[in-house]
Nucleic acid binder design. Structure first.
Lengths: 338, 338
DNA sequence: CTGAAAGCGCTTACAG
DNA sequence: CTGAAAGCGCTTACAG
């Protein structure tokens, strides 16, 4: 092993040992141009002998490609922190990391911190997957400024970005139908107050279903930043003002656990007196007692789809504005049984 | 905005617009050398006017630093896949990503796939956090070959790598004491068959405690690859051969759920006839019915510690061989109550 | 405090 | 099929 001591070997070292030029080593590695079998063997031997590993920074600078994609969300910490919303982000990130491998790419995790500009300052990427952006999402504008290809998971507001449809409407419909079938007659909706498409679509669906069923709507917007406590207070007030409530639909899981706590404190039995359902089937839904009826969003598949689309976009291919995600499926649990 | 059309602006463009040299722009950005206030202002104006964003690949190539750390684990998919073990990895990754930001670094997620060499091929990093490596861990040898600084979470086998102590012994002790206090007299240990330090330490602790309590040990090794099903079969056989078993300690959560299923199928009540405890307090433990008594490992803190140590190591500072992690705390749930 | 220039390690036209 | 050379966009000695 005549490794040049101290210094990491470069193409130059490999070329010298194999008796060829740098360019030929590069071509043997990338396959960009054909290299004679015998030459290639000499090169491979030299690579093995030296323990050569390409300098990715140099390659990236030269090609202008980073072979990296990023995953990010701008959900505020009150909802996204801890194991709850984070679970949502993480399920997607893990799946995207595995799929990125098929495209010779790595996945960087952009942490959900207060300042998106700071979070992005030190990450280079060929493209980004943005999870459920809000209107005027800070990540989206930063990425647009930099001209970075984006695929949205959820549904983008206004922007013309390509997206994977997570079926907000169908999800709301699934949960509301379930409540109505179980005999709920006074269903309250506890919804995020921010301008997120998921909230708007869910609310429209709710209004329509209530109107069809001849049930007076009861919508309680809660600021996302207030998280579980906000939903707790909202539910406590609701139970006093509308004592007849027999079901609560809280799509944000942090809101659902807040509602559950308020119900417990008010002595209302779940599901006996009040049924509760939420959207994301994560730690919060499963850990609650009784555990919460929710929806399997098939996030692994969603992430796989989004990754493939993003890679096509980066490669300059045409991709559809909207891509159908897997259909959500109801997961019935104790909070709405019986 | 006299942005050079099509091309992304570079230091050169900024320098020209500000009427200074490239070097001065660089110094103004990095703070490596002092720059006169008035000059700095002109530079900042130029940066804003052009929308200049540094080319990280060029910077990395020049400095030799990637400002990236990676998180990885070599746990086989049968145990690590899905929401279970993945949760463990993800809790650490999320926390490490946030802490990395304090060191101007990004975090890449190395996906747990069959071939570690493939998983690492396209990621450049200054250092790595390796989670609970096994003996002759493939990631560890790859990283060593490349001379990449490593901090281990858990406990390394043999290697002299710095590590954050997750208190395997104390964790086992906590759970076994709990079972003994609740009156368990015939405690079986279902443990991973691979050469992982956590398994060895747990087993030693178990042997010692059983010996002290005058209880005949009953250890059932299950290959990690067999996952939940392996533990199911092992438990089924165990219940036939040793009918008097009144407690099961299954540190791997996938094994614990396998044991729970076997107990249900055998008609044994949990916790009435058999108590069950596991280690990682993740989705599996919480979702099980009854939910499983487990241990809060304070993974966010552990990850924060590991990230700080790794950054020091990268910076060339001396770091201790072993760093005390937060103490585990018992989370008592239905599977061992009453 | 600032400038001019070298060079990090690759890949890719350009010749042959 | 192969080589010699240019150049990607930074940072950092080296001068002044």
């Amino acid at each position: 092993m005549d490794k040049p001591a101290g210094r990491r070997p470069t193409v130059k070292d490999v070329a010298r040992l194999a008796g060829v030029s740098q360019g030929t080593v590069s071509n043997a590695l990338s396959g960009a141009r054909a290299v004679e079998t015998e030459t290639r063997q000499r090169i491979n031997q030299a690579i093995a002998a030296l323990g050569y590993v390409p300098n990715l920074a140099a390659r990236r600078m030269r090609t202008g490609r980073t072979n990296t994609i990023a995953v990010m969300t701008s959900m505020p910490a009150a909802v996204s922190a801890g194991s709850s919303r984070l679970g949502f982000l993480m399920e997607i990130a893990a799946s995207a990391a595995i799929h990125a491998l098929d495209y010779n790419s790595a996945l960087v995790l952009v942490p959900p911190v207060a300042d998106p500009a700071v979070a992005l300052r030190h990450v280079a990427m060929d493209g980004a997957i943005v999870i459920e952006p809000q209107q005027d999402d800070p990540f989206l504008s930063l990425l647009e400024t930099r001209g970075i290809p984006v695929v949205v998971i959820g549904q983008p507001a206004g922007t013309g970005l390509p997206w994977v449809d997570m079926h907000y409407e169908r999800t709301a419909d699934l949960l509301l139908s379930h409540l109505l079938e179980r005999g709920a007659r006074r269903i309250a909706l506890i919804i995020g107050a921010s301008s997120r498409v998921s909230h708007a679509v869910t609310r429209e669906c709710y209004d329509r279903r209530m109107s069809l069923a001849g049930i007076p709507p009861c919508v309680i917007p809660v600021p996302e930043q207030e998280g579980e406590d906000g939903a707790y207070r909202a539910t406590r007030d609701l139970l006093q003002q509308v004592p007849g409530i027999d079901a609560i639909f809280a799509p944000v899981d942090a809101f659902a656990t807040g509602a559950m706590r308020a119900l417990r404190d008010a002595g209302r039995a779940v599901p006996g007196e009040v049924r509760v359902v939420t959207r994301y089937d994560g730690l919060r839904a499963r850990e609650e007692r009784p555990s919460l009826t929710a929806v399997d969003l098939h996030l692994e598949q969603v992430a796989g789809l989004a990754t493939g689309l993003l890679m096509d976009l980066i490669a300059g291919k045409e991709i559809p504005a909207r891509t159908e995600g897997p259909l959500p499926s109801l997961v019935i649990r104790g909070s709405s049984q019986g």
